[in-house]
Amino acid sequence: MSGRPRLSDRLLDAAACPDPAAAVLDATVRGDRLALRTSGTSGATRSVVRSAASWSHSFPHVSALLSVGHDARVWVPGPLSSTMNLFAAVHAAWAGATVVSDPRVATHAHLTPSALARCLDDGAPLTGVHVLVAGDRLAVGLHDQAAAAGARISHYYGAAELSFVAWGSHEDDLHPFPEVDVVDREGVLWVRSPYLADGYEGEPGALLRDPDGYATVGDRGHVAGGLVRVLGRGTEAVTTSGVTVLVADVEHALRPAVAGGELVVVGVPHPDLGAVLCGVLTDGARVDAVRARARSVLDRTHRPRRWFAVDHLPLTAAGKVDRAGLATLVASTGEGVRRLL
């Protein structure tokens, strides 16, 4: 295939190709390695290097779990610069399915939780559509809202470096993906599977390995009773009054009180405390319930001191919550932000 930029011999720079999905599918036939650009927790762009086979090995499992075949019409509205969306487009092509731009004719869709919430708000036609949600945790309340709208919902946890790790219907129903071993070591998730990346192009990055073939990117969580509980990337932390608070822990503790809305905790600079924890809700009417839960389950140092409501959370180009952008918006009480308490 022409127009196949390479970083080195047999290493394909997928994002630089005119048709990234077709180029990656071709690479699976040639046995090439892939350089897939991704933004880490810090927001810095880097290239994750993996074999094409580390993706294609999962294709039959994904097809079976989603019931994707030649008659499927797959809607992938996000940019192919996101590895999640690129994988979806490549898998659809491999399965002989048709990628469509009109959700009204789709049988399947690949969305982030925020994109799913926006579809529900906009009244998008999801009845009978099998929606695969990834890129961030899928709350039970949002899952139930989508199911009530007639959608069939699947959810997975993974990472650009690890690919698929766990699959289920929502964040409280995640089981190890086929052929994946996942364990937690002192609260950090380690994964062994055929889907792991090789590393990064030209830099060490966050991927760590052990002699037994397990790898981690530092995501925190627990494995018990066949379920994988994901708490989030340990580097998302706020230091307030000399105490370092992992926002994933706070969000996880408060999530049961949020119902169908969304909750994000961010840190905003403070002249005396260093930073102050702020809770941001998409359903401001839930603030009393969420604050009551904070008082009952969190230490005082870990409770958000300020609360805000937004109609929609700002998103990155990949469709994930833009935490840095949200913190800036909250700090300035920008357009669309309402101070609650």
Rank of each mutant, 00 (worst) to 15 (best):
A16N: 03
T235G: 10
G187V: 10
A64I: 01
L263G: 07
A146T: 09
F59V: 08
D299S: 14
G202F: 08
D181H: 12
V129F: 10
A14H: 02
L254C: 04
R137W: 06
H252M: 00
V258H: 10
A259Y: 01
G221V: 12
L196P: 08
L277M: 11
W55D: 06
R152Q: 14
D122L: 13
H270P: 03
A160M: 10
G226E: 06
R295Q: 07
P20I: 03
G135V: 07
D181W: 10
G274L: 08
F164K: 00
L313T: 02
D198I: 01
A53T: 10
D311A: 14
R6G: 04
L341N: 14
A52S: 12
P103F: 07
A253E: 13
R293T: 12
G267E: 05
T45R: 14
R220W: 06
A151E: 09
L111C: 00
P176I: 11
R30G: 11
G69V: 07
R104G: 15
D181G: 06
I153R: 11
R255W: 02
A95E: 08
S42C: 03
E236V: 15
T107N: 08
S8H: 12
V297H: 04
T216A: 00
S81D: 13
A97K: 08
A92Y: 12
L126D: 02
F59R: 02
L329V: 00
L313E: 02
S42N: 05
P194W: 11
A197H: 10
D272V: 15
L329M: 01
G43W: 01
P204A: 15
D283W: 03
E179T: 13
A89I: 11
